[in-house]
Computed example of a mutant assay.
Amino acid sequence: MPYRPAGILARMRSIDPSSPRLVWHGREGRIELSGRVFDNWVAKSSNLLVDELDATDATVVALDLPVHWKSLALAFACWQVGSVVALQDSGDDGSSPRAAQSTADADIILTSRAVEEVEPPRFLVCVALGSLALRWEGPLPRGAVDFAAEVRSHGDVYLGQDGDDAAAQLMRADGRTWTAADLADGVTLPADPGAAGQEAGRARTVLLEPGSDLRRALAAALAVWQEDGALVLVEDGVPVTERMLAGERITARLGTS
């Protein structure tokens, strides 16, 4: 049975917390998050969701975000507070009427794009994806929350009750609902040729090929992190080079589907 999100975060805090768990190669450069640092970002985001956006285990949160390290932290924060993540259908760039419909019943919308304001009691959160961004660039829609400007003021520890029911629905995407088991079971990690003589699947570093959608990235994270491994994500347009593979000590590569 795959570890559920809160279980994964607990392991990040207790098993080699200073070891890399998430590496991002973007156009701005490389970002490495240890288990402790990723857990801190999740905790800060969870506290923002609860304290400022009234998120509960009945809340639907739409992630209008690309594959990015911040997107993973925000998804795990939603799961930590028990909220359901709603994603666009695979292959949708967010501009179609169907994409708009996918967020129609969301209580909170997290977006990295310039969008129109939403009417209360719904919340709009604008997420600047620059790793060092301190605020949203450009004007905020009326009533919107600036994630980068607000999240750092929240605590590094989440003291609320974890939403970690084994049967809980974590995600809505591609016309169906997903639990942690559904997501992780949909990913078969490639064999690690260097694992001979070691416990299979432990502490490996897996690269997810560029071009994957966010559902695939979240499923890969659950599968890799339940084995205490590290996940490497690469932004579209950034080449995967032999130097990158060697530098990150990649042990397996996971395709886009």
Rank of each mutant, 00 (worst) to 15 (best):
G7E: 15
A167L: 14
D213K: 03
A181T: 14
D54F: 14
A195W: 05
L245I: 13
L22V: 09
L233S: 07
L132S: 14
L208Y: 00
D107W: 03
L53D: 08
P190H: 07
L129T: 04
V234C: 04
S96W: 15
G94F: 11
V84S: 02
D165G: 15
E227T: 08
C126I: 06
A106Q: 06
L33H: 09
S19I: 00
T56E: 07
D165C: 12
L129C: 10
L231G: 04
I31F: 05
A196P: 06
R27K: 10
A144D: 07
I15M: 08
E32S: 14
A73T: 07
L87Y: 00
T256M: 01
S112C: 15
V60A: 08
N47Q: 11
G82I: 05
E242P: 07
L134G: 09
V238N: 00
A166P: 14
T188L: 10
A196N: 13
I8V: 15
R253H: 01
E150Y: 09
V157H: 13
S71K: 02
T111I: 04
I31N: 03
P66K: 00
D39Y: 06
P120C: 10
A191G: 15
L189Y: 01
A77Y: 04
A73I: 07
P20R: 05
S19H: 08
Q101G: 08
A180N: 06
E227Y: 03
R13W: 12
R216A: 02
A230I: 01
V125L: 06
T179S: 15
G26Y: 03
R122Q: 15
V145P: 00
A168G: 14
V50F: 04
A221R: 00
A252F: 11
I109A: 01
D51G: 05
T177V: 09
W178D: 00
L254G: 07
A133Q: 09
P66M: 03
L53W: 09
S131M: 11
R4S: 11
S18Y: 02
G229Y: 03
R4M: 10
P97E: 12
L9Q: 10
H154A: 02
T179W: 08
A75Y: 05
V157L: 14
A219R: 02
I31W: 04
D228C: 05
R172I: 10
P121E: 14
S96T: 15
Q101R: 07
V23Q: 01
G130Y: 06
D105K: 11
A43H: 01
P121H: 11
L110P: 00
S14W: 05
R36W: 12
Q161D: 15
A191W: 14
V81K: 05
R243W: 04
V42E: 11
S131W: 12
R142Y: 06
D156E: 12
V187M: 15
A128Y: 06
L159F: 07
P190L: 05
S102H: 11
D146K: 06
T241Y: 00
V234I: 03
E116H: 05
L222W: 01
V23D: 00
D164P: 15
L245Y: 05
P193V: 03
S212Y: 04
W178Q: 00
V115T: 12
P2D: 08
